[in-house]
Structures are given as C-alpha cells and as structure tokens.
C-alpha cells in the first residue's frame, strides 16, 4: 500500500498542528468516505491525523443555540433527545442517509466533508475535473441522471451527497472552525461551494482549518418540519431529489418557512425566494405549488436528469404538505 504517516491527536490544537507544513495531510474520523477514496486511488494522503480522540462529541444547548460537536456520530445526533425535540428535521435527515452501520461510524464533520458520489469521480479510467483538474467532465455529456440542475458549470455538474447538510442549511446553521489563526464562524450556506472553475474545491475551509462544531439557532420550526427524500430504493441510496421543509405556523397561516433541496446542486441548495413566497400565506397545496414553481426558477437539466425538473417541485410540495400536517 501507499505509505502514509499516521498520527493521533487528542486536542484541537494538536490536530491543527498535525496538518502544518503538509498540504497532503488529512484528518480522519469515521473514515466512511476517506478510506474508500484511498482504496480506489482517488486520493492518497501522505499523512492522516486521527482526530477521534479529540473531545468534540458533545451536543449541548446554550445561549439560544444548539451546538453539535464535529465528532458527534450521525447516529448519536439522530437519536439525541434534544435534537429530536428541538430540531426534528435534522434527526429525520440523518436517518434518511446511509445505513445504520455507516451512521454509527460517520461523524457530523465527516458528513460535511464527504465527496460527491458521481461515478466519473470514482473511476480513475474516466475523465473528471474534480478528481483530476483539466481532464474534462465525464458527466456533462454522459450518464447524468443523478446530477445537478442548479449552479452547474461547464467543468462540473456533480451533486453534494449529504442529507444531513440539507437540513442544516435550512435551519440557518453555522459552522465553527478553528485554524492556526484562531476560530471563525462560517454560515452553513457558505460552507459548501459551487463548482465554477475549481470543481476540485468542495468547500470554503482554509488551509489547516478544522471543523469544531455546528450551531443551530433556536427556532420555532420543531412542530412543522419534514425531510422528504426520493431515491431509487427504499433505503440506502443517494437522493434523486430530497427536500427539507420547516414551517413556523400561526394557525393555518405560515409565519415563516425554511426550505432546502438535496440531489440538485454541488452544495445544499437553499430556496430563499420560495421561503419568502410562503411567508404570510395559508398552508395550502396551492401555496406550496406556487412556492415550488419559484424554487425551480433557473433550473437547467441535462440529457438524463430532466425528470428532476418535474420531480423537484413535486417533492417540495410533498415535503411542505407533510410539514404542515396536510398528509
């Protein structure tokens, strides 16, 4: 096997120092994606800094927000009482992702850092600008049934695969990161990026920065939230389209709404215009249909994923109906 250095960090500081002076060093936690990537020769880090011993697993409530440690397991977050009570949307989204075995290994930070599942990215015999910049995009003229309809570029039309992140972007979460220069917060919506001319870059983390936690501000969405995922089998498949919908209701009227889509873009796709259109309206199928139409503005399909233009709005409506208790 390719030789690499392995180091175990027990503090955030040690972990960050572990990356110093080595642009090819990576953190490893659950390893549910990174190990696959290494086995398939898609990435070959020269150093792995194991951060599983860093104490970042806590889930706590303070100062008007819920803070989830970067190393909290996906299953631990999904089953956490506080999360189920205050942010059921997140719990639902987590349980819609992967398998129980993977959720028991995967961490919150790792979930955010997972790479696309585009088959051209995973086959080193095929072109992929994300894996090998300049080699071309295999999916653009290829089998792009699973690919993006929003925010694509000529360089890359891959989608971000996470379910958890769709709920987090809807819930106005922010990401606390730490680096050699100290801590900073990144709004969740700005954490992942669109491919543009640099599809190899998935996110806006700077060199040697580490995810410390994800923070969700308190909200009034707990009663009316739903994560709706459509996939090719009943479980353990990536989304064709998924929608995270959260409503703050005043009787039958929507006070405010949060809406985000998965399976449609290189990043979790927040639908702010549709949210605005929902605010102040009665929670009816017609309202939802109108919001869905707004949400789909600017969508562009490729040869095999045109169905997403129709499935997308349908899933938005279904997610909102479920959130509003109309189903």
């Amino acid at each position: 096997m390719i030789q690499f250095q392995y180091e175990r960090a027990t503090t955030t500081k040690a972990a960050i120092n572990g990356l110093a002076n080595n642009s090819n060093a990576r953190f490893i936690a659950g390893g549910t994606n990174l190990v696959d990537l290494m086995k398939r020769n898609i990435t070959a880090p020269t150093k792995l800094v194991d951060i599983n011993m860093v104490p970042l697993k806590d889930i706590q409530q303070q100062n008007g927000k819920t803070s989830i440690g970067a190393l909290a397991l996906n299953s631990a977050v999904a089953d956490n009482k506080l999360i189920i009570e205050k942010h059921p949307l997140l719990s639902q989204a987590l349980n819609a992702g992967a398998s129980a075995q993977i959720r028991n290994m995967a961490t919150v930070g790792g979930n955010m850092m997972q790479r696309t599942r585009c088959p051209y990215f995973y086959d080193t015999a095929l072109p992929c600008n994300k894996r090998e910049p300049g080699s071309g995009c295999g999916a653009l003229e290829g089998l792009n049934r699973m690919h993006a309809i929003f925010g694509t570029s000529e360089q890359c039309i891959a989608v971000h695969p996470s379910d958890m992140c769709i709920a987090l972007v809807a819930l106005d979460a922010s990401v606390l990161v730490a680096g050699p220069k100290g801590e900073r917060r990144i709004p969740f919506e700005e954490f992942h990026r669109l491919p543009g001319n640099q599809p190899e870059k998935d996110n806006t983390l700077q060199n040697n920065e580490m995810i410390i936690s994800v923070e969700i501000p308190d909200n009034a969405f707990a009663k009316n939230a739903h994560y709706f995922k459509v996939r090719d089998r009943a479980s353990y498949a990536f989304a064709l389209v998924s929608v995270a919908a959260a409503l703050n209701m005043d009787g039958k009227v929507i006070k405010e709404a949060r809406l985000a889509m998965g399976g449609v873009a290189h990043k979790p796709w927040r639908l702010k215009e549709a949210e605005k259109a929902l605010a102040g309206k009665p929670a009816t199928e017609e309202t939802f249909r109108q919001a869905a139409e707004i949400a789909m503005q600017g969508a562009k399909a490729f040869k095999y994923n045109a169905f997403k233009l129709k499935l997308g709005p349908n899933v938005i409506v279904e997610a909102l109906k479920n959130a509003a208790g109309l189903v």
Binding site: Y120, D123, G138, L143, D232, R233
Partner: peptide, 25 residues
C-alpha cells in the same frame, strides 16, 4: 448495470450505485 457507451464502462458498479433490494424494499 448502466454503461457509458462512449467508454464501454459501467457507471453503476458497486453496491451503492447498483441497487439490490434492501430490507426496506
């Protein structure tokens, strides 16, 4: 098993992309 005929290579060739039914199905 979906093939990209430009290359003659399958693009669904692991158990994540080639979907055999799971318990929930």
């Amino acid at each position: 098993a979906v093939m990209d005929h430009r290359f003659g290579r399958y693009v669904t060739k692991d158990l994540a992309d080639y979907h055999v039914p799971v318990h929930a199905d």
